[in-house]
Design a protein around this nucleic acid. Sequence first.
DNA 1: GTCTATATAGGGATAGAC
DNA 2: GTCTATCCCTATATAGAC
Lengths: 210, 210
Amino acid sequence: MVKPDDKEEIILKAAMEVFVDKGQYGAKMQEIADKAGINKALLHYYYRSKEKLYVHIFKFIFKKIMDEVVELLHSDLPFEEFLKTFISKYIDVLIKNHRFPMFIMRELSQGGKIVSNALKEAIPSELSAHSPGIEIIEEAMNRGEIVKMDPRQIILTVIGSSLFYFMGEPIIRVLLLNEESFDRERFLEERKEAIFNIIYYGLAPRGEKQ
Amino acid sequence: MVKPDDKEEIILKAAMEVFVDKGQYGAKMQEIADKAGINKALLHYYYRSKEKLYVHIFKFIFKKIMDEVVELLHSDLPFEEFLKTFISKYIDVLIKNHRFPMFIMRELSQGGKIVSNALKEAIPSELSAHSPGIEIIEEAMNRGEIVKMDPRQIILTVIGSSLFYFMGEPIIRVLLLNEESFDRERFLEERKEAIFNIIYYGLAPRGEKQ
DNA sequence: GTCTATATAGGGATAGAC
DNA sequence: GTCTATCCCTATATAGAC
C-alpha cells in the first residue's frame, strides 16, 4: 500500500526501532531523525509531537501482534492439534517480533493515561467482547478431552510459558543459559515441544491413578 | 539495621517508588524529592547523581527478589511437595512485590550498559555458577518421578506461568479479566493450584496409554 | 545536613528561508 | 517538503548561605 521509500514509512520504521529500544521517555527525537536520515523539524512536520508519534507507534505494534494472534485462533482442528499448532505458530510470531511483547507490557507498566488509552483504542472488536480462546477450551472440556478448570487459567499458562523466554531473555541468558555456545534457534524449537507436552498432558483427564 | 526515619532510608523508599513506577528515564529527581519531603539538593548530597541513585535502587530490588527466590530452593521435600510449595510461595512473593519483576525486566530491556552491569554485580554467588533448581529437577528425573526433559524447559514453564499474571496485569485485566467484580486474591489462589496441577501432571511419566 | 538560588545542558518544538 | 537556526522549557547538577 505505502511505498517503502515513502518518507512517512521511513520515519515510522526509525521511530519504531528507537521507541522499542529505549521506551517512551528514553527515546529522543534526534536519534529517530538521525536513523531516518532527516532532521528533527521534519519529524514535527509529519507527526506534530513526540507524543503523537509515540501513540502512533504503540497502536501500530499492538495491532500487528494482536492481529497475528487472533488469526491463530481461527481453527477447527481437534483440541490436541489446535494446541500444538497454536503454541508452535505463536512462538514463531514471537521469534519474528521478539521485542514487541516486552515493549507493549513495559510501556503499559510505566506509561500514564496516554498509553492505556491507546491500548483501549487499539483492541480489535473481536476481542473486546469475548475471548475466542475461551470457547475453544470450553468445548474441549465439554467433550471430556481435558479436565474441567477455569479456562482463563489455561490461557495464562499457555501464553505465559510461551512469552516468558522473550520477555526475560536478557536475564534468562545470564542466569539460566549462560553458555558460550547456546543454540537459540534449537532451544526455541525444543521450547515449543516442551510447552505443548507439559500443558497438554497436564490437562489430560486423570483416571483412577490419581 | 537502619532506622526507619533515617534520611537515607526515606530517600531510598521514595526513589524506589518513583523508579518502579516511571522507569529510569521517566523518573524525575523532583518527584523523588517531593515524595521524600526534601529538596533536590539533598538528593545529590546523599547520592551524587541520578544514575548512581538508580543503580542503587536497581541492585537493591534485584537482590531482594533473588534472595527470596533462592530461599525457596532450599528444600528437601519430595518433588511433588517441593513443586507445590515452591509455586505457592513464589506467587506469594510476587503478590507482596508485584511490580518488581516487571521493573527488573523492563529496565533490562531498555537500559544500556549501566543496567546490565548492575545486574551482573548483583547476582548472588550461589546462582552465578549453577542453578540450584536444575539439580532438584534432575534428581526427580533420575528417581523416575517425572519424565526426562531439559530441566531448563521446566524452569521456564514454572516461572513463566507464575510470573505472567504480574508482568502483564494491565493488559490481562483488559483482555481477559474484564469483569467489574473480579476477585484478584481468589483468582491468584486458584492460579497456584492450576499451575501446579498442569505442570506436575504434565511431567508425570506416561505409561502405555499414550 | 539542609536549604535557596542558579548554572548548564539537553531536547522538544517552532520560525522562516528555500 | 525540507532545511538551518533558534526558542524555551525542563531537569540535572552545583554554589554557597545557614
